[in-house]
Design a protein around this nucleic acid. Sequence first.
DNA 1: CAAACTTTTTAAATTTTTTAAAAAGACTTT
DNA 2: AAAGTCTTTTTAAAAAATTTAAAAAGTTTG
Lengths: 406, 406
Amino acid sequence: MALITHKKNLFYAQLTRHLFFHNHLSSTELSELTGKSIPVTTQGLNELIKKGKVFESGFAESTGGRKPLLYSLTEGSLLIVSVAMDQLITKIALINEKNEIVGEIEKHNLKLADNPSSIAELIKILKNFVSRINKPDKVVGIGIGMPGFVDSLKGVNYSFLQTENGTLVEALENELHLPVFIENDSSLIALAELRWGAAYGRKNVMVINIGWGVGLGIISKGELFKGHDGFAGEFSHISLFDNQKLCSCGKYGCLETETSLVVIAQKAIKKMTEGELTVLKNLSENRIEEGARKILKAAKEGDKFSIEVISESAYHIGRGISILIHLLNPELVIISGIGSLAGKVWIAPVQIAINEHCIPKMAEHTEIKISKLGEEAALIGAAALVMEHFEEININLKKIEKVLIN
Amino acid sequence: MALITHKKNLFYAQLTRHLFFHNHLSSTELSELTGKSIPVTTQGLNELIKKGKVFESGFAESTGGRKPLLYSLTEGSLLIVSVAMDQLITKIALINEKNEIVGEIEKHNLKLADNPSSIAELIKILKNFVSRINKPDKVVGIGIGMPGFVDSLKGVNYSFLQTENGTLVEALENELHLPVFIENDSSLIALAELRWGAAYGRKNVMVINIGWGVGLGIISKGELFKGHDGFAGEFSHISLFDNQKLCSCGKYGCLETETSLVVIAQKAIKKMTEGELTVLKNLSENRIEEGARKILKAAKEGDKFSIEVISESAYHIGRGISILIHLLNPELVIISGIGSLAGKVWIAPVQIAINEHCIPKMAEHTEIKISKLGEEAALIGAAALVMEHFEEININLKKIEKVLIN
DNA sequence: CAAACTTTTTAAATTTTTTAAAAAGACTTT
DNA sequence: AAAGTCTTTTTAAAAAATTTAAAAAGTTTG
């Protein structure tokens, strides 16, 4: 009897997950997505309606026959704590069942590198955030995106936030009493694009995360691809250049030595001191992040100087993308991450590099697009991460004190 | 009634496919592989025994309980025509239900490039081969591996064997009256490694096909990965070098300009004319293939000169493999293709390149192995290609005149 | 404007899976 | 060394899911 309920709960969780990612679905669509028959699906939906988790949200347009009845998640039925970390700043947001950010995005200073108390600080910030949530019983989990070599299955980050005993996820779950999921930041941006962005419904996509480094999230067969240890998509440090520039990783010629927002800002400063004309003002080596954002904004608004600086980097990234196209033959490459705030200026130089370095047949059906998710991609991806594991949350009842669906 | 039989046939085909790839399996193992329950699986097996397609082939060793009864395909129940093409030579073999080559491997001269009658020649060779098979009614299909940009789903090769109307597969099936499947040669070698070689049971493997170019077959999530158009794994022409050597593809600095059996043979000839010592004799620019084979054999037998020439190329391939490791984080890289005949001499220089160009953490769990399949890999892969599609063969009864299982 | 065509929804029949029990073999303990 | 315990496979009965067919609800076309 316990097992039957358990199995049913798993199916309910599956329905809930699909409704989260699609907002509203008909019973036929849900039947196809879950692989269950229509009678079983309808029965499951009726149970969820009885529990108040789901409601009938209207009719879809007919495609030539009877209008299908649509189902959606009940308002306020589900909350997710989304966390997006970079080397210096940690952002936190509360996300609801419609994938909307509820309230304000909080920003905290939290240094990841060489910081023995980073885990303690993170726990403190999260405990405080969770304590202020109005309906804490609706929170299904915490999703965290972070830089570094993250093994999300094991729940470990090999670059930062290292624990003495047990995994990082265990350390967080023990303190926060909520299911916690971690993932590499670029992978989460790719997940955000897959579920809510330009990669929606696509099978084979490369998502380039242009930030302080250059990240890559790989969508293969319609799913995030992570490789054997969970580290797939290391793009910053493939050796592409013969430039003798020492990289932070200790090698020479990495992609990162020629392209990243840091490189772009540094180049701009150098050119400005050489007297080139631009609308940019007050760029400083000490405030590289601020400078980079100014350049992205100026490029978006048409500043020739900024566009040229970005174009140089874009061409180099294009060389890297050419390799991706040869190896993985994607249907789509998305320029995402903070760099995407500059808009379409990235596309032309990337396309030129592809034309020069790809066999035409290989690149024939590969589109290049700029992300429309903006800076919130990482937070949205962290929420998606939690919902990807929604069935798992409902199996591992150990993980949480309450049964989510009962 | 017809539909029921149809669906049953599909299940029988699935059982047959799994038995082909595993030689002998217990009902429990087959139940897990097919995703059907044990009662249904046992019932299906008993039907196949009744039809004479399957027999009880003994008991497996116990793992702590009752010995499981094993099932195997009946001897002589199934034949596959395997074809392995390169730019100049086409090999054909007949393969049985145990994945054994029956009779002789036939070799035919068939030029692929700039040959308008290539398809006609191929059809003639295949018709002749099929006409000489003792039990033609047991042949389930023809699998063909060939160089070029092959879209195996559409049944088209965009580089060679181009048809005027209809696809290549249609052209062949219309003449040969058997189901035909085509695939890129490197992909087929990867498939052979996955089903019968060093990649058996692995999920995430890169198979390097060292031949007249350098090919790549990608195993991802335990399956052959082909990308959006079917062209994934183009490894020869990623631009890696700053060498100003013009490649056959029209670009500069491709991997192929520094490594392939052709480059190795040419380098050896150049060094020999410069007076370096070796056991090698009579190498000629006009017989590059023969020369390359001599070098591989000599290297295997310890000739210092040959090992050095190969090592240089191996290091360059290692640079390419470093990029694969960064991007796809494989658990295993297999050196396969004709080049693997030289044996383990490839490993050390590849490993050195990985040490120099990979972030240690990325390559930590990546093994490098030499293929043990030898030259027959391509033929074995072509047979595997047919059997991968065995259910499909049994659905598309249009494709063949007879019902395979009845 | 009614007939023909689509598609969703509901209901009954069949099939499949699940569950439990029995059978067969291997390991452990006295 | 033998009996009992533990695994695992196999068989048989109960439960659940899918398949199939029919009905209901809309659209489109002649």
